[in-house]
Structure formats: structure tokens, C-alpha cells
Design a protein around this nucleic acid. Structure first.
Lengths: 218, 218
DNA sequence: ATAAAAGTTTAGATTAATCTAAAAAATATT
DNA sequence: AATATTTTTTAGATTAATCTAAACTTTTAT
């Protein structure tokens, strides 16, 4: 059984290790959790002692099979709760993160089973992130970063990379949400911004920064 | 802001102080929380320092106005979550307590507002206990302990005093749940057990012990 | 009314999570 | 390659929550 704090460390390490296969460094974890490197060193000793991660002094951390399983169950809970908050309680998609951070630590397998059923076994949360099933399996569809999308091709928004309120509110303002159709009309060489038609309306400019945080499928 | 642990102490002290107007004693709190008197002493010093309770050495504890307000908000959360679990997620009424003990500590006034709305502003939880409104107001109907009920009078079950699984499962078995109609047909002097007709069916015996834990209204 | 019993508090430790400052190791620079 | 810089770890403290054992109050019983 992991404490609330240990779960937060494990989840953070798991997210930092996603994608890349390099070890996760002490300072990256400290930065993510807004804590100090010394604290992180203590915690990773504890987590490696419990075999959720492996740890080589000065070289960083890797998540074990056991650790990944546990991390995925936390991610599953987080995303199911976010879905509940938006679909059932009418939260805005930028209001759910902090509450889900708390709810993800509730210990009750039965609760999660029943919540999943109540929500109709969703496969993605309100930000388009995949929800692992109860065995930890993720149904991942091929996603393209909007920045790299081909010109004049019909696209559908399937996820956002950044869950910050300011970004999500900006997206809402320009009419971008999960499932919306986009067509990139032009790429501005100078600053990497894009002219994009949203739901077939007249094209508008989206900055490179924003386009790096929007994921689409064909 | 109270910690998870402080909230549990405050809630327990509040419940122990309900009904009686006597001070709550250290050992009662320790027994309720399955902890030691020395630990309780430390904690009540902290809570009285924060003015949620008043405390006179060796004579026990009383909940302040501020403490009552906070305790009621925890009780409100607990009972709203229990209602959610039973009404929306199809939990059995004997399965909800432990999960609600965790959920009651989630910090988000918006969440509770929205949950309350989603549930249709319920005034009682699945065990018949009143749910304080957002101002801490409790809609209390006059309740009678079944043991003391008048013979041959039509009654409706409105609450149970004891939330243990074993008791709730027993009640389910004999067909007693909130809202069910009862008529006490006879009181056995010897052991205080009652002959009760449940939903107008043929009377059956209910022990004094059980009858002390069932609340009814006329 | 005094002694015994029961209940409560204090003192001193322990564990988890955190911090700062100093030491050690790895990486980058000249 | 030697030195400087950055990163990480270790050492030593601190706070919250808990415990046991000893000391102190209050209550009960003789």
C-alpha cells in the first residue's frame, strides 16, 4: 500500500518516463512536484526499496512493471473522475484537474468499477487522454501534433497536451474542443503559427506554441 | 485549514457531543478512533488552539460554533457521497460507509455544490440520516425509536442508528429499509422483543437490540 | 477521609515527509 | 587534463501524528 505522497511521486515519475526511454532525473522530479532534490532522493529510495522503481545513484530512475501497473491504476482513476466531473456534474474542462488530483487517491476498487460502468466505459477523458482499462490496457489511437499536420487535410481534434486553465480557456474561446474538425490552410514560416479553419469557418491564426499542444487525428 | 486527521477528530467529537450536553471525554474519543488517550490529548490541544473546540484539562471537550460549522460540512459531504454511491452507482447501503469516510475529506466547495444539485438536493442519506444544507441547517423530522413505538399504529421506517454491515444486512434480509411501513403488533415483556408486521405481511419477531436501532415516524 | 482505582496528561521516542547546508559525483569548460 | 559548474546525495533539523511509560488528577470505595 502506498501513501498519498508516494502515489504522487510514482505517478509523476511515470509521466516523466512516458515517451522517452531515458531514466528520469532527480531534478526533473523535484521540478514537477515543486519540491527539493534532497526530498526526492529520500522518496526514490523508498519507492525503489518497495520495487516500484529501480534507481541507480546519480543516474536516475526507471519504473518497474509493478510500478507501471500501479501508476496506470492512478491514471485510470484520475481520468475516470475527470470524465465524471465534466459529463455528470457539468464542470468546465479547465476546472477538473485539481479535484481529480484528490479523487485519484481514494482507495476502493469497487468504486472505480462502478464509476466506470456508470460512465459507460469511456476510453478517453475530457481532454482526450486515453483511460486505461481495469487491466491497465490503453486504447491508443494515432495522434498527430497539430503543428506537424499536413496542409488542407481534414483533421479532428482528439486531445490537448496541456491541462492548464489558461490554455483550455483560450481553446474554448477560439472554438476548439475535443471532436472539433480542423483544416490547416497555411503555415507561416516566420514564427511557425498556422492559419486554421475551425469547423469549416473562416481561417484564423493559431500560434506555434498552441499548435504544439493540440493533438489531432486524420 | 484542517488536516485529514484533524477533520476526523473534529467529526468524531461532534458526533459524540450530539444529543447530550455533557463534555466529551478523552477516553471516549480514543475509543471511537481506536487510538490512545495520550494521542487524543495532543490532538485536542491542537484543535482547541485553533478554536474548533474548547478544552478544560481533565474535564473534557466542547465543540465551538466554528467547530460545529466545520463538522457539519464534513457530515454533509459524507452523506451526500453516500447518497451518490447508493442512488447513482448502485452500491448496497451496507457498502458505502468506508468509501464515504475517504470522500468526505475532498476539498472542493464547487464539487459539493454540483454533487448536491446532481442528486436533486436530497435531505436524507440512504440510512435516513439528515443531510445538512450548505448553510449547515438540518431538516429534522420527529423520529421515534421503534422499541418505544405504540402498538397497532402505522409507522414508516425513516432511519437506522447503526451503520454496520452486519446490521444492515440483517435488515435487508427481513425486508426493512428506509420508507418501509411497519406496525408493531405485540411487545414481549420478557426480553423486549417485538412482533412486527412489515409492509402488512404476517408479523415476525424483531429483537430489542434491533428495535433500538430502527427509527420510525408516524 | 484516606486509600485504591480509573482516567488524563506529560515526557520522551518513533516514523513519514519535508527542508537547508555541506559533501560528493558527474558534466562542462578552458 | 585540470578546473569550474551543475547535479545529486548525505547529514542534520523540523513538524505532524503516533506510541509507551511515568506522573498527576479525579472519582470511587472502604
Amino acid at each position: 500500500m502506498l501513501s498519498y505522497t508516494e502515489e504522487n511521486y510514482l505517478k509523476t515519475i511515470y509521466h516523466l518516463s512516458e515517451g522517452g526511454q531515458k531514466s528520469v532525473l532527480t531534478n526533473e522530479i523535484a521540478a514537477s512536484l515543486l519540491t527539493k532534490a534532497a526530498t526526492v532522493t529520500d522518496m526514490i529510495k523508498k519507492l525503489s526499496q518497495k520495487e516500484f522503481i529501480t534507481y541507480e545513484k546519480y543516474y536516475g530512475v526507471n519504473v518497474t512493471k509493478k510500478g507501471k501497473t500501479h501508476a496506470l491504476s492512478i491514471v485510470r482513476k484520475h481520468r475516470l473522475w475527470e470524465t465524471f466531473l465534466v459529463e455528470k456534474l457539468n464542470f468546465m474542462w479547465d476546472e477538473v484537474h485539481d479535484v481529480a488530483e484528490q479523487l485519484e487517491h481514494i482507495q476502493s476498487p469497487l468504486l472505480i468499477e462502478k464509476l466506470d460502468e456508470f460512465l459507460g466505459y469511456p476510453t478517453a477523458d475530457p481532454h482526450g487522454h486515453p483511460i486505461p482499462d481495469k487491466h491497465g490496457k490503453i486504447k491508443q489511437e494515432k495522434q498527430i501534433v497539430l503543428k506537424d499536420a499536413i496542409i488542407d487535410k481534414a483533421l479532428t481534434v482528439c486531445a490537448v497536451r496541456n491541462g492548464s486553465s489558461s490554455f483550455l480557456q483560450y481553446l474554448s474561446k477560439i472554438g476548439v474542443s475535443i471532436g472539433v474538425s480542423l483544416i490547416v490552410k497555411e503555415r507561416i514560416e516566420f514564427d511557425g503559427s498556422l492559419e486554421v479553419s475551425i469547423q469549416n469557418k473562416k481561417p484564423q491564426l493559431i500560434s506555434r506554441e498552441a499548435a504544439e499542444n493540440i493533438l489531432v487525428k486524420e
